[in-house]
């Protein structure tokens, strides 16, 4: 299987799984305004995933459709980072997860704008506008929760402490990346890391929060080794296609 195909799936899977996670909150947000905000973001992410899966289906050349890729792969074939499959938890956890991801994604899409692959560059341009808003939303909330009450500060700090171990994987690179970078298609994540660190630090400072000093890092999602959560997500996500094969909306 070619590298660009795998590369597109990684980006698509991140979007799909986080979009699915957020959509679990539909009707359960802490306030109706926030409920709609989070489901808007979920829809943006699923929309991004749709564009990417459609493109991957063409690149893959196996006669698979975007739906096949989204709904009919097995758990080990999904290559999203572990961060996006972590449970919603309390509102602080949802926001902290989103903020880590958005901080990375804004920089990633900005870098992908100059991809030699026209289609990926176009998807990046459209997605970047959405993602900048997601980042603004999650950053503003992180600042308010961190610099809010003692309770909100303690809870969102706890969420950062828990999720921090999954953030290193955002910068995971292997031979797939090396291959697409060599072709001018992919993004050199190593170059993004210092910019990401700075971007994170600026918001943390305002939020009066800090990253834990514990440097234990958990990786595996990019190569299909997931936490126990992904199987449960997929059982909901894939239910309709499994129960009613080939059904269309």
């Amino acid at each position: 299987m070619n590298s660009i195909y795998k590369y597109i799936l990684r980006i698509a899977d991140d979007s799909l799984i986080l979009g699915q996670r957020l959509s679990e909150l539909c009707g359960h947000g802490p306030a109706i305004e926030e409920d709609i905000a989070l489901t808007n973001i979920a829809l943006d992410l699923i929309g991004q995933a749709t564009s990417l899966y459609e493109y991957a289906a063409i690149v893959g050349g196996e006669g698979k459709t975007a739906d096949d890729l989204a709904f009919l792969r097995f758990e080990r074939e999904y290559t999203n980072v572990l961060l996006v499959e972590q449970p919603n938890g309390d509102f602080g956890m949802t926001i902290a997860r989103q903020w880590f991801f958005d901080s990375f994604r804004v920089l990633f899409y900005e870098a992908l704008l100059t991809s030699t692959d026209q289609q990926l560059a176009a998807i990046a341009a459209k997605s970047l506008k959405e993602t900048k808003y997601h980042w603004k939303h999650s950053s503003e909330w992180l600042i308010r929760l961190g610099d809010g009450t003692d309770e909100s500060h303690a809870r969102v700090q706890k969420s950062l402490n828990y999720l921090h171990r999954y953030t290193e994987e955002l910068f995971f690179m292997d031979e797939v990346d090396a291959d697409v970078i060599a072709q001018g298609i992919g993004v050199d994540l190593l170059a993004l890391k210092p910019i990401y660190d700075q971007k994170i630090e600026e918001v943390l400072l305002q939020a009066t929060l800090e990253l834990p000093t514990n440097n234990w890092k958990q990786v595996g999602g990019r190569v299909g080794k997931h936490s126990e959560h992904l199987g449960h997500i997929l059982s909901e996500l894939q239910y309709m296609q499994r129960a009613y094969p080939n059904m269309e909306w």
């Binding site: 305004e33 905000a37 808003y133």
Partner: peptide, 20 residues
């Protein structure tokens, strides 16, 4: 109308509720 903790979030919520 809508509920929001402050002006900045009110604009953000308005964007999500009334300009989607």
């Amino acid at each position: 109308s809508l509920h929001a903790p402050d002006a900045e979030m009110a604009v953000s919520n308005a964007r999500d509720l009334y300009t989607r």
